[in-house]
Nucleic acid binder design. Structure first.
Lengths: 155, 155
DNA sequence: GGATAAACGGACTTGCGAGTCTAATATCAT
DNA sequence: ATGATATTAGACTCGCAAGTCCGTTTATCC
């Protein structure tokens, strides 16, 4: 509800990319394996992320997508901005065209701390934090799978 | 970006309702006058709010919609829950089906304070706070209009 | 150079939230 | 009673985000 579906896919995929291969190319199909990420759609999203400068790509054998920067240099903020556009987060909370200090909407003042918290969250969370959390989770899932012999589809 | 468009309409309309007539019926057309609220669509939304117990309605001359409770008893939380469903706010921030303390998503821990802040905001903000803020704004706008002789479309 | 393997590009489909429209129903005033 | 006025109900349209598909291009390997 904070991000668009497209943006959620982007975030999850980038976190996976940072875990699987922090530097070097990963194929889309490999990236989506064992997850419910829609590979065709993600391919389209990744193309845009290349355009936005977050990813680089290489065609042909051994190719794929790679992070354009080191994981600790990529903020959640940058991903969200590239996909949804950060503007969506600075607009009026009830969608008024005119909403500022002189013409505030009914919730303007009350919402300020929430907006502040969201922006701080987007700016302070980085890809390496997310990849670290994800790596830990994948490890746990792998253990669970080995003991139950059930494939776990998640990321 | 926090609410659906429908929910924004509901919030704005209820705030207006509380300003125009805190108790007693207001017609949809009257409520939308001088705003960009889509009256037909709002009629549909208000029907649902009647079903949710936030509004009461009366047909025929002198009828319309009225608040079912006093403005200070209606929280933003209640409105959002009636329209979007509060469940949307408690789900995983990146849309994972399974996401809890045992299987957290890559952002689970980092997002907690944001979620907390949002919920606090929804629970603590009430309709009378919003109507008070709106009344103040409408007053300013009315003054501006009188001095410039330009009709101001807003709420 | 041919086969293969990957991204690239765009056209296309689908699903759903948003918004419109009209007929039905209930209420009030005279 | 009758006409005016309001919600009610639901079918319908519209636009966009989400998702699919396939041919093209570029790179690599043998």
């Amino acid at each position: 509800m904070l991000y668009s579906t497209t943006c959620s896919y982007a975030i999850r995929a980038l976190a996976r990319l940072a875990v699987i291969r922090p530097e070097g190319y990963v194929r889309i199909t490999e990236l989506c394996e064992g997850t419910d990420l829609p590979s065709h759609f993600l391919a389209k999203i990744f193309r845009d992320l290349v355009g936005a400068g977050l990813l680089t790509s290489a065609k042909g054998r051994g190719g794929g997508f790679a992070l354009a920067k080191r994981p600790n240099e990529v903020r959640l903020y940058d991903i969200v901005d590239a996909v949804d556009g950060i503007k969506a987060y600075s607009q009026c909370v009830v969608g008024l065209a005119k909403c500022d200090a002189t013409q505030p909407c009914p919730q303007h003042d009350y919402f300020l701390p929430v907006r502040k918290e969201i922006i701080a969250y987007l700016e302070s969370t980085t890809l390496d934090q997310m990849s670290e959390a994800l790596a830990k989770k994948m490890e746990i899932l792998a253990l669970a799978e080995r003991s139950s012999d059930l494939p776990v589809v998640s990321d």
